Computed example of a mutant assay.
Amino acid sequence: MSTTQNERLRGLLEPLVGAAGLDLEEIEVSRAGRRRTLRIVVDSDEGVELDACAELSRAISQKLDETDAMGEDEYVLEVTSPGADRPLTEHRHYRRATGRLVRFQLHEDGEVVARILAVDEDGIDAEVPGVKGRKPTARRIAFGDIAKARVEIEFNRKDKKEEEA
């Protein structure tokens, strides 16, 4: 049984990423004409610093040079953190989004925009913001009810540090 290039790359790179204290979120190999790009997306509970991406990029580059995982053709290596608009698909994504406003597409109840208050193994405790002067309401959302979820970007969101001050 043969393995795909992404599976081989994941097996090769996951230990490097883990040793850096990060999670390997995504591997994408794309081609535009003669140019190939290998994009590695990493994340952690504390986020990812630019210096960590640079160090990891050097380690990955060295590891790839030692193997034939990318073949003989030239490629561009990008090591990055996920964007703010990436979909929430893993339990850790929801946990990391605690305190954030999220747009949930539910299998049966349509769409809900709510702030994640807590995450456990079965689902999410959320707060649906009040509209037109109404108070926010608590809502429990089971993981099995979620079709899609994505963090909403809030330009006027108060930082946790501001709220504590």
Rank of each mutant, 00 (worst) to 15 (best):
residue 2 S to K: 14
residue 2 S to R: 15
residue 2 S to Y: 09
residue 4 T to P: 08
residue 5 Q to Y: 01
residue 6 N to K: 12
residue 7 E to I: 11
residue 8 R to F: 04
residue 10 R to T: 08
residue 12 L to K: 04
residue 14 E to A: 11
residue 17 V to S: 03
residue 23 D to R: 11
residue 23 D to W: 11
residue 24 L to E: 02
residue 27 I to F: 14
residue 28 E to C: 11
residue 29 V to Y: 07
residue 31 R to F: 14
residue 34 R to W: 10
residue 34 R to I: 09
residue 36 R to F: 02
residue 36 R to E: 10
residue 37 T to L: 15
residue 40 I to S: 01
residue 42 V to N: 14
residue 42 V to T: 10
residue 42 V to G: 10
residue 43 D to P: 06
residue 45 D to T: 13
residue 46 E to A: 15
residue 48 V to K: 07
residue 50 L to D: 15
residue 50 L to I: 06
residue 51 D to C: 04
residue 52 A to C: 01
residue 54 A to I: 01
residue 55 E to P: 05
residue 55 E to F: 05
residue 59 A to K: 09
residue 59 A to R: 05
residue 62 Q to G: 10
residue 65 D to G: 08
residue 69 A to P: 08
residue 72 E to A: 13
residue 73 D to Q: 15
residue 77 L to F: 10
residue 78 E to M: 03
residue 78 E to T: 06
residue 80 T to E: 13
residue 80 T to C: 06
residue 80 T to Y: 14
residue 84 A to R: 02
residue 85 D to E: 06
residue 86 R to L: 02
residue 88 L to I: 00
residue 89 T to D: 06
residue 90 E to S: 07
residue 94 Y to G: 12
residue 94 Y to A: 03
residue 100 R to A: 05
residue 100 R to F: 01
residue 103 R to E: 15
residue 105 Q to W: 09
residue 109 D to I: 05
residue 110 G to P: 10
residue 112 V to F: 04
residue 113 V to M: 02
residue 114 A to N: 04
residue 115 R to S: 00
residue 116 I to G: 05
residue 122 D to V: 11
residue 124 I to S: 01
residue 126 A to D: 04
residue 126 A to C: 06
residue 127 E to D: 00
residue 129 P to R: 03
residue 133 G to V: 09
residue 134 R to Y: 14
residue 136 P to D: 02
residue 136 P to V: 01
residue 139 R to G: 14
residue 143 F to Q: 13
residue 147 A to Y: 12
residue 159 D to A: 13
residue 160 K to T: 08
residue 161 K to S: 13
residue 164 E to V: 13
